[in-house]
């Protein structure tokens, strides 16, 4: 088991290296002179020359790339072009907001999605099932940012129940969480339904029923446990994704989270911040995928032997 984890962690090194290379290349191709971004539009020639040297912009691409990697190994991701502060000094203060949003979103969407999926599957082809399936199909086709706008119009502008932007109380989080959770709950409900239906047709379910297990026990103990695997993958991926901040949701609701910060940084061409946060988020994603795989082994003992062998 530990050997497997170590192996997976080692695999992350070349991938992280490639991530850095790809983002570095994209950022290098982005038009806009960093010196102008920092110094403004009409800087004195001497200052331009000094700053170009300081940022190493006079050196060739590969030299700059490797010096970036070298610094990154010392956890030095450079200074933000806008604030001239270390990159992560800008990101960390935004993290709690995003973490709370991600946690609430994933919790709500998982509970809602799995529950509705189970109801749909257990009552296959009933009116409830058809309604739920069709609703989830529609929500799979609703763009997140438009759902945000619709929720704001309904709950803030018309009904005046909830604030439409900012932070301060948990009430500010209700609409953003709904806007991000509803589409992923819809998706999760579809997957859960398909999985449950497949599992319910297995012979061990018939055996369990034949042995006289009541319906509740069959559904939750036998069927759900086996249908859980793909659900875990989706939950893990969406949590990793949500940690990057649902950029657009945060933007629409004016939440000062990581996503909003990254979006502003991309628009302002603040290269070090975009680089640092992309690398950070990619590593979070990889760690999350490792945790998902470990959860597989925990839930399904037959998979455990596979890990042990490696």
């Amino acid at each position: 088991m530990w050997k497997y984890i170590a192996q997976r962690l080692l695999q992350m090194i070349p991938i992280t290296f490639l991530v850095i290379f790809i983002v570095f290349a994209i950022m290098d191709a982005t038009p806009g002179d960093p010196v102008r971004i920092i110094l403004g539009n009409d800087p004195p020639a001497q200052a331009v020359e000094d700053l170009t040297k300081e940022l190493g912009l006079d050196k060739p691409f590969m030299v700059r790339f490797f010096s970036y990697v070298g610094n990154a190994l010392h956890l030095d991701f450079g200074l933000s072009y806008r604030t001239r502060q270390p990159v992560f000094d800008g990101i960390w203060p935004k993290f709690p907001t995003t973490l709370l949003l991600a946690f609430l979103t994933v919790t709500v969407s998982t509970i809602l999605g799995v529950l509705l999926g189970i109801i749909s599957a257990v009552k296959e082809y009933s009116a409830v099932d058809i309604t739920l399936t069709f609703t989830s199909l529609i929500f799979a086709s609703v763009p997140g940012f438009w759902l945000c706008l619709m929720l704001i119009i309904l709950f803030s502008l018309k009904l005046h129940w909830l604030p439409s932007s900012g932070v301060g109380s948990i009430r500010h989080f209700i609409l953003p969480v709904l806007a991000s959770a509803i589409p992923s709950a819809a998706y999760l409900a579809r997957i859960t339904r398909t999985q449950m239906l497949e599992v319910m047709r297995q012979e061990y379910i018939r055996t369990a029923r034949a042995k006289g297990a009541d319906n509740k026990r069959v559904i939750f103990k036998h069927a759900l446990k086996n249908a859980l695997l793909p659900i875990i993958t989706i939950t893990g991926t969406s949590f990793a994704g949500a940690l990057g901040g649902s950029m657009i949701t945060e933007r629409v609701f004016g939440l000062p989270g990581v996503g909003n910060y990254i979006l502003t940084s991309v628009q302002a061409k603040d290269v070090p911040v975009v680089m640092g946060s992309t690398i950070f988020l990619s590593i979070i994603f990889m760690v999350m995928m490792l945790l998902v795989d470990l959860a597989y082994a925990w839930i399904n003992p037959t998979l455990r032997s596979r890990f042990a062998k490696k």
Binding site: V19, I22, A29, T30, M247, I248, V266, L281, S282
Partner: peptide, 23 residues
């Protein structure tokens, strides 16, 4: 491995950075 690298970058962030790089 290159595909893995693309896969673990946040999709929307990749698209946004690319589109801003390409103008």
């Amino acid at each position: 491995r290159i595909l893995d690298a693309f896969y673990c970058m946040p999709g929307m962030l990749l698209t946004i950075s690319l589109s801003s790089a390409l103008g």
